[in-house]
Amino acid sequence: MTKGHHPSTPTRRPDRAALFIAAVLAAIAGLIFWDVSRLTGTAGYSQVGPTTVPYAIAWCLLGLSIWTVFEALRGDFPERERQEVAPVIWIVAGLAAQMLLLNVAGFSIATGILFALTARGFGKRRLWLSLPVGIVLCFVVWVVFAKLLQLSLPAGPLERLFF
């Protein structure tokens, strides 16, 4: 791993990521134009109707997209730190697992998995340890918030074992 010393690309080369951002901005603007054009512009007594503001926002986004292209071509975007991809994937997997399992497995198990996978993303490799720790911790949290404070947190097999 190279620390602090990353390959400095020549600044004059067009920044491809920035061009991509410009394209995304333009796409959002297009999406707004497309969606809002279906609305009936019943403004009533105000000349500013439900479509006026979205159109204005879309035009501005389009302008910002062009501005971004200019900055990208001039290489005005700040240099980026090199990003590690693996930790991001671990954490996103944790969040996705929690989302999908929440209503099936209950709060403790789903969130315990999120906990363990996040710790994995930060370098704690021993899942056999962090997973049970996470589930127990989440169960305690569930008891406190769902039972004591009446927050509606989904219960699963584990929770129903005790309550």
Binding site: L95, T111, L114, F115, A116, T118, A119, V141, F145, L153
Partner: peptide, 10 residues
């Protein structure tokens, strides 16, 4: 950070 995500999703 595992704790932060736990409480944020909670």
């Amino acid at each position: 950070y595992a704790g932060i995500l736990l409480f944020a999703t909670l």
